[in-house]
C-alpha cells in the first residue's frame, strides 16, 4: 500500500485494514473480476440507461433501434411532459399521497407496537398473529371489497381513499415490535418509578431510540406508496387528482398516427424515478440499519 494511505489512516488505526482495501482501486491480476463486475452493473443498469437515452430522442430516433446515442430532442421531452401533459400535478399528487401514507403508517404502527410490547392484555399474541396474518392480504387482493367500502363511505376520488388502505401495515408493526422488544425492561421500569407517562415515554425515549428504524421504515413506505398503481387507478377517476404512476399510463395514449411517443414516456419515467432515488440516497444509512446490514 502507498505511504499516502498510511499517513491518512493514522487517526483511525482500528479501521486501517478495511480502509486500505477500499482505497485500492485496482488490484493487479484481478482485472477479470473487475471486468465481470462492470459487465453485470451495465447489464442491470441497462433499462435505466436506455430509458434515459430514449427520453432525449425524437419518435423516429426511438424506433431506429440501432440508435443508442443521446437524441436530438435534448430536454424538450421533459419540458413537454411537465407543461403540456400535467406531469407536475401528477407528481405533486403522488408526493402528497406518499407523505400522508408514510406519516400515518409510522404513527399507527408506533402506537400498535407500543401496545403490543409494553402493555399486558388478553390475547396479546393472538392479536399480534392476526396482524401478521394480514400480510397475506395485500391491497390488490382486497381491491373489490375495498372499492365497495370506499364507495359506500363516499370517499372515492378523495385523498382519504387513496391513502386509507395503506395506513395499517403489518410489516411496520412487526419491525417496530421487534425493535422495541430489544429495549431493556429496566428502562421502562425506571420510567415507571419516575412516573413518566406512556406518551412521554414514547416521545422522549422510544422514538429517539428508534430513530434509525423509523427513518428506514419511512423510506421503504415512501417508495412503496410512490410506486402504487392499481389502487389509485381504480379509486381515483379525476385525471387532475391522479398519481404519477397512473399519469404515466395516460402518456401512452399520446402520439401521432398510432406511433407511441416513447421519448415522452421515458422522460416521464425518468422523472418518476427521481424522488424515490433521492429518498434512497438521502436515507441509505438508516435504511441499512433497519435491516441490520450496516457495519
Amino acid at each position: 500500500m502507498s505511504l499516502d494511505t498510511e499517513d491518512t489512516a493514522v487517526g483511525a488505526r482500528e479501521n486501517e485494514p478495511l480502509s486500505v482495501i477500499s482505497d485500492t482501486r485496482l488490484v493487479p491480476g484481478q482485472w477479470r473480476v473487475h471486468l465481470g463486475l462492470i459487465g453485470s452493473i451495465l447489464l442491470m443498469a441497462s433499462p435505466l440507461l436506455l430509458a434515459f437515452v430514449m427520453s432525449t430522442q425524437t419518435v423516429p430516433e426511438v424506433y431506429d433501434i440501432t440508435n443508442v446515442g443521446i437524441g436530438s430532442d435534448g430536454v424538450a421531452n421533459y419540458v413537454e411532459v411537465f407543461t403540456t401533459y400535467g406531469m407536475a400535478s401528477y407528481m405533486f399528487n403522488s408526493l402528497v399521497m406518499s407523505i400522508v401514507v408514510t406519516v400515518a403508517k409510522i404513527a399507527v404502527s408506533l402506537l400498535a407496537a407500543v401496545a403490543l410490547v409494553f402493555y399486558d392484555f388478553r390475547f396479546k399474541n393472538a392479536i399480534f398473529f392476526l396482524i401478521l396474518f394480514t400480510l397475506m392480504f395485500p391491497v390488490p387482493v382486497r381491491i373489490v371489497p375495498l372499492y365497495e367500502m370506499m364507495a359506500a363511505l363516499g370517499w372515492t376520488n378523495t385523498l382519504l381513499a387513496l391513502t386509507g388502505p395503506y395506513v395499517a401495515s403489518a410489516t411496520a408493526v412487526f419491525l417496530l415490535r421487534q425493535h422495541f422488544m430489544s429495549i431493556p425492561d429496566s428502562l421502562v421500569e425506571s420510567a415507571k418509578v419516575d412516573g413518566v407517562g406512556p406518551l412521554r415515554f414514547l416521545w422522549d425515549v422510544l422514538i429517539p431510540m428508534s430513530r434509525g428504524m423509523i427513518s428506514g421504515l419511512s423510506v421503504i413506505t415512501f417508495i412503496y406508496a410512490w410506486n402504487q398503481y392499481l389502487w389509485p387507478l381504480i379509486v381515483v377517476s379525476d385525471q387532475n387528482k391522479q398519481v404519477v404512476q397512473v399519469g404515466m399510463k395516460y402518456l401512452q395514449s399520446v402520439g401521432n398516427a398510432g406511433q407511441t411517443d416513447w421519448g415522452l414516456i421515458m422522460a416521464g419515467a425518468v422523472l418518476t424515478l427521481l424522488p424515490p432515488l433521492l429518498a434512497l440516497v438521502a436515507f441509505r444509512g438508516p435504511l441499512l440499519e433497519t435491516f441490520g446490514l450496516s457495519e
Binding site: L187, S190, K192, D194, V196
Partner: peptide, 30 residues
C-alpha cells in the same frame, strides 16, 4: 403506583437512556 411511592431505584444494567447525556438522564425523571 410506582411513582407515588417516593422510591428511587438503581438497576443492575444501569437503565440509562442511551440517547441522553448524563445530565439529561438525571433530570428526565426528576
Amino acid at each position: 403506583s410506582p411513582s407515588d411511592r417516593d422510591v428511587a431505584m438503581v438497576f443492575q444494567n444501569y437503565a440509562l437512556y442511551p440517547h441522553m447525556t448524563a445530565r439529561e438522564n438525571m433530570t428526565f425523571g426528576l
